[in-house]
Design a binder for these strands. Structure first.
Lengths: 146, 146
DNA sequence: GCAATTTACTAAACATGTTAACAATAAAGG
DNA sequence: CCTTTATTGTTAACATGTTTAGTAAATTGC
């Protein structure tokens, strides 16, 4: 008799189900990224910067779902590798503004087709409606007060 | 004009939506665990071991969604802290069998009520039906071939 | 039986996750 | 103004994630 007999099997545990689903979705993206020496996180950062233009680090952290200490380290290497640039904001000197470089954009452009193909593949197998419904439910879950 | 104008906003990106939803769900659990010096991963391991009894490490890795190298390290410290025991399997000497100790079980028992309350809270806010539906969709997503 | 392959796990190296503490600047409130 | 508080970001320390390589034992296939 176990302590947790009241609880669900792992496949019906929300935290684990979310983790496993994410592994499934990320697997082909990781395959793509491994070919170009980019981590999942750096890829997300490049996409956010391409989408938002020049932004402060908190905004990146928020959009790309990273904590600031991680972001600090990652941006340091990305700057050294020439994928982004950073400069102090003149108005608010606490802020660092970050921008994607042409090299960074090139990485995105080179992998856009593969990225879209991965998304399409999942959509084709699950169906657009189900996928939209799933995204709605996930959005709703994020709004839950904890 | 950005490179990614074809793509969805981050809130409709499946990988990020899954990540954010998971953050929401884990936040109160992390609060609980911080009080008892346990990481999210160790908590999952204890629950799996309580549920499955004595099992090999690959089974834990699979159930708790951890890679073996991470598991090796984590189990080493958990053994040192007396929450689990490990022994070589006599039939198949490659296998290491892992079992939860009474101390480990006590940790689970002490936090069962809090854990259940967190689950109930989410269920109360989202509704059981939606939650079940979400779990169904996540299960379906995991089955997608990539 | 035995070589080749597979399985179960470990080790090492590097990247990120996570928390706590801190520095610098800006905003708020008196 | 000037103190207090909040915001922005960094650093450090430790835990885990991820990949590659390696070891030992079991299984396969001939």
């Amino acid at each position: 008799m176990n302590t947790q007999s009241h609880t669900q099997s792992t496949s019906r545990s929300l935290p684990i189900a979310l983790l496993r689903a994410r592994e499934t979705v990320m697997a082909p993206i990781r395959d793509m990224l491994q070919g170009i020496q980019l981590t999942e996180q750096k890829w997300r950062i490049l996409r956010v910067l391409d989408e938002l233009g020049e932004v402060e680090q908190s905004a990146i952290a928020n959009e790309a779902c990273l904590l600031l200490p991680s972001l600090t380290r990652i941006l340091r290497t990305m700057e050294a590798e020439g994928q982004i640039t950073r400069r102090q904001d003149s108005q608010d000197k606490r802020r660092t503004m970050v921008k994607i470089t042409d090299d960074g954009r090139r990485i995105l452009a080179d992998n856009l087709a593969t990225s879209l193909a991965i998304t399409s593949n999942i959509e084709a197998q699950m169906g657009r409606e189900k996928l939209d419904h799933l995204l709605d439910l996930l959005e709703e879950l994020q709004a839950v007060k904890v």
